[in-house]
């Protein structure tokens, strides 16, 4: 009986694994097929495609510039908060602060969009700055949480340096920074990807400004008819391809930055 149960379990594991992998592979093939089917491209002149691509590149530029600006402005704030939390506040008292930051980082993006629409947009005239402010609001606690996890790894180093008589700024700048710089880059790139792919919150913020200012996800959502107007299938596909390329580039950069990079594959 036990032997049969064991065989059944192993068979179940194999079947489940195979079904899961087949579903994912089938799903990906379907996605690529839907994106690249020729029927929507038939009879389209290269000039029309080129003008759509140029428009898409402008939208991509808006997405990338707002995301880069948000991460660049948010990172120092999150880094400072994380350093204070990990190395300055006594460990016993830091517990409730960490829990508070963890809980605040769970707030959904749509809530941030609602807050930005009510409290930030009335005070900012430029759509670009409103989007940057929203992204900073959304990313601050999440970045702090991610950086706290990075800094926790080097607590022993900081204690050792402190015991040997180093000042705090020397410890952080000459001990922690060189060790953690790759992790900082990985955290920043993850936030960049998240900001570039944010749709709902930015759509709410951009609804208060005129037409013309769009990020890739919001342009895609508008093309699908979420706001009442809809775009052509060709425009939707151009936007989808650009967004996918952006995500692939960011993922490749994150993989290159993280310690478990390609060189570790040989040791697997």
């Amino acid at each position: 009986m036990k032997k049969q149960m064991r065989s059944l379990m192993r068979a179940g594991i194999w079947v489940g694994g195979a079904v899961g992998i087949l579903l994912l592979a089938g799903g990906i093939s379907l996605v690529l097929g839907v994106l690249l089917t020729g029927s929507t491209w038939a009879g389209t002149s290269p000039g029309v495609v080129w003008s759509l691509v140029r428009q898409g590149m402008r939208t991509l530029g808006f997405s990338v510039t707002t995301s880069v600006a948000a991460v660049a402005l948010c990172f120092p704030l999150a880094w400072s908060l994380s350093v204070v939390l990990c190395y300055l506040v006594p460990r016993g008292r830091a517990g409730w602060l960490r829990k508070a930051i963890n809980c605040l980082s769970a707030v959904p993006a749509v809530v941030f969009g609602t807050m930005s629409l009510s409290y930030i947009v009335p005070h900012i005239e430029s759509a670009w700055w409103a989007v940057v402010a929203t992204l900073i609001l959304m990313s601050l606690m999440r970045q702090t949480r991610a950086l706290t996890r990075v800094h926790d790894r080097y607590y022993a180093l900081v204690e050792t340096a402190d015991t040997l008589g180093a000042y705090f700024c020397e410890t952080v700048c000459q001990v922690v920074l060189p060790q953690a710089k790759k992790n900082y880059l990985a955290v920043a790139l993850r936030m960049l990807t998240r900001c570039a792919c944010e749709g709902v919150a930015i759509l709410l913020v951009l609804s208060a400004y005129g037409a013309g200012a769009d990020t890739l996800p919001t342009a895609l959502m508008k093309a699908l008819g979420v706001t009442g107007e809809s775009g052509s299938v060709l425009w939707t596909q151009v936007l989808a391809v650009l967004l996918l390329l952006l995500v692939l580039v960011c993922n490749a950069l994150i993989s290159a930055c993280m310690q478990e990079g390609r060189h570790n594959e040989k040791n697997a």
Binding site: P108, A109, T114, G199, V200, L204, L220, L224, V226
Partner: peptide, 28 residues
């Protein structure tokens, strides 16, 4: 928290969906 995928799927802001999309609809 997921609202983006559902809004893109529905292709419109519809009433009485899930909490996140309903919040988007009310804010919109």
């Amino acid at each position: 928290c997921e609202a983006t995928a559902l809004l893109a799927l529905m292709g419109a802001v519809m009433p009485n969906q899930v909490l996140a999309t309903e919040l988007f609809r009310l804010a919109w």
